[in-house]
């Protein structure tokens, strides 16, 4: 398993975590290259179907990160994301999604080092858990087609 390079996708808000990741860059903090960041205006914008879509596309792990509680640029978007996560966690567990692969965090615009740590921690963790091959099996019994259907509808 040592040569397994996990594919991690990060859904971050523009104002805190994206800026925090920028700060990690300006501070030249080195971290694992396995991460791909997708920018959102706010964690409140993040639809949990996107997480399923990421797994379906082959992600082994997901980070969702935004502003700390009370620091949201839009007042309360991060609270909505947090509530949504609490509700969806149960649903995802029920559906058989491995929720250990989803990391929910707060990284502010001043926490470049924290971002670096977070990425390394998640990459190490996912390396231990291994590639997400079980997802494909779930797809056969329905999850894949649900998210596929959802995507088809919004198109």
């Amino acid at each position: 398993m040592s040569d397994f390079e996990p594919k991690i996708i990060a859904f971050v808000c523009n104002w805190c975590t994206y800026a925090g990741a920028d700060l990690a860059g300006t501070s030249r903090i080195k971290y694992a290259h396995n991460i791909r960041i997708v920018r959102f205006p706010c964690t409140g914008r993040i639809d949990f179907m996107l997480l399923l879509k990421a797994f379906q596309s082959g992600a082994d792990g997901i980070i969702v990160s935004g502003c700390h509680p009370a620091d949201c640029h839009y007042t309360a978007g991060n609270y909505h994301a947090r509530r949504r996560w609490i509700v969806f966690q149960n649903l995802l567990n029920f559906l058989g999604i491995d929720t250990r692969r989803i990391t929910f965090s707060w990284v502010s615009a001043a926490e470049g080092a924290k971002w670096g740590h977070l990425v390394n921690e998640v990459v190490d963790n996912i390396k231990k858990i291994g590639p997400y091959t079980e997802y494909a099996k779930l797809g056969k019994i329905g999850i894949g087609s649900i998210s596929e259907g959802n995507y088809a509808r919004i198109e």
Binding site: V38, R45, E155
Partner: peptide, 22 residues
């Protein structure tokens, strides 16, 4: 799914995610 947002639309973010690991 009746609300969408300019610049971060459903289509756009799904396309971004799907371009990565397919």
């Amino acid at each position: 799914k009746s609300i969408d947002i300019n610049g971060y639309s459903h289509k756009q973010v799904y396309a971004e995610v799907m371009s990565l690991f397919n």
